[in-house]
């Protein structure tokens, strides 16, 4: 059993490296020491929670949080519906299937930063400026998530699908009744990934939102960063408040998410 001890040691070291930034973030958020002094203190000095109060009143945090939640919910809903349908369509043989796959793969290589002006012009044309739908539209479907669905649909045994077809189920009902119940892990992965990517989106909301009360959390953070360039506790308190909701959702869903990704689509 010597191997076990060695494995635990390695994993503990890795965990420390991964958790050190979180600890430092929390420590600086509860003490507003000027982190320019050398040597930095490993343990918090005179901890107090007033930084959070200052931040709460300076930046309309509830409004930003609410906007971020609404946009993320739209994005997650959109992703589930569109990715499932596209993933299922890609499992069916049709002419030009490979070229659609290559097209989708090459779409991932187009950087968002280079598409801002045309994307803005199109959204303005649709009249969705400064609105939740306008914010969520580019995020409604993600290519990586489509392939995650496609992989788990490929693993569904053909016999089940053929049986359903013989019973006369339409394609949509096959997707809903046969495919999706068997790939809950892929669903969990889709939910978490699309939530993460829409929650962290920074550049698109910056360009498309006009009024103060349509801003999302990343914009609030970027605004705070510039407004409070120095590194006292207030900036870090705000970083903690921005990260907490995302981490909370992830920690709650992580067992399903982990099970989803790690137990593979189906056995055998």
């Amino acid at each position: 059993m010597r191997k076990l001890w060695w494995r635990h040691a390695a994993l503990i070291v890795i965990s420390i490296i991964m958790l050190a930034p979180f600890y430092w973030l929390l420590k600086t958020a509860i003490t507003s020491e000027n982190i320019y002094e050398y040597p930095p203190h490993l343990l918090p000095v005179r901890p107090q929670l007033f930084n959070f109060v200052d931040v709460w009143y300076l930046i309309p945090f509830p409004r930003y949080l609410f906007n971020s939640i609404v946009v993320s919910l739209i994005a997650v809903a959109g992703n589930l519906v569109l990715n499932a349908m596209a993933g299922f369509a890609l499992t069916l043989p049709f002419v030009g299937r490979r070229s659609v796959i290559v097209l989708l793969l090459s779409c991932t290589l187009i950087p968002f930063q280079a598409t801002i002006i045309p994307a803005y012009l199109i959204t303005a044309h649709l009249g969705l400026l400064d609105s939740y739908l306008g914010l969520a539209l580019p995020l409604l479907s993600t290519i990586v998530c489509i392939f995650i669905f496609k992989a788990s649909f490929d693993a569904v045994p053909r016999s089940l699908i053929d049986a359903a077809r013989i019973d006369g189920l339409g394609e949509m009902r096959i997707l809903l009744r046969v495919m999706l119940p068997l790939s809950t892990p892929a669903i969990a992965t889709n939910i978490v990934l699309s939530f993460i990517w829409s929650w962290n989106n920074f550049l698109w909301p910056l360009i498309i939102t006009r009024s103060q009360d349509m801003q999302t959390l990343p914009l609030g953070l970027a605004r705070f960063l510039s407004y409070m360039e120095d590194t006292t506790g207030a900036l870090y308190a705000f970083v903690v408040m921005v990260l907490a909701p995302g981490l909370l959702v992830f920690l709650m869903a992580q067992s399903a998410f982990m099970r989803g990704l790690t137990t593979g689509a189906t056995k055998g």
């Binding site: 009143y57 309309p60 509830p62 409004r63 949080l65 609410f66 609404v70 739209i74 009249g127 969705l128 400026l129 400064d130 609105s131 939740y132 739908l133 306008g134 006009r210 009024s211 009360d213 349509m214």
Partner: peptide
């Protein structure tokens, strides 16, 4: 900005109306 705006906000959601009145 009264604290209760957070609760009131969750109730009244105008999903798609562009804010430019």
């Amino acid at each position: 900005m009264k604290r209760r705006t957070f609760l009131a906000g969750t109730a009244a959601t105008a999903l798609t109306t562009p804010a430019i009145a």
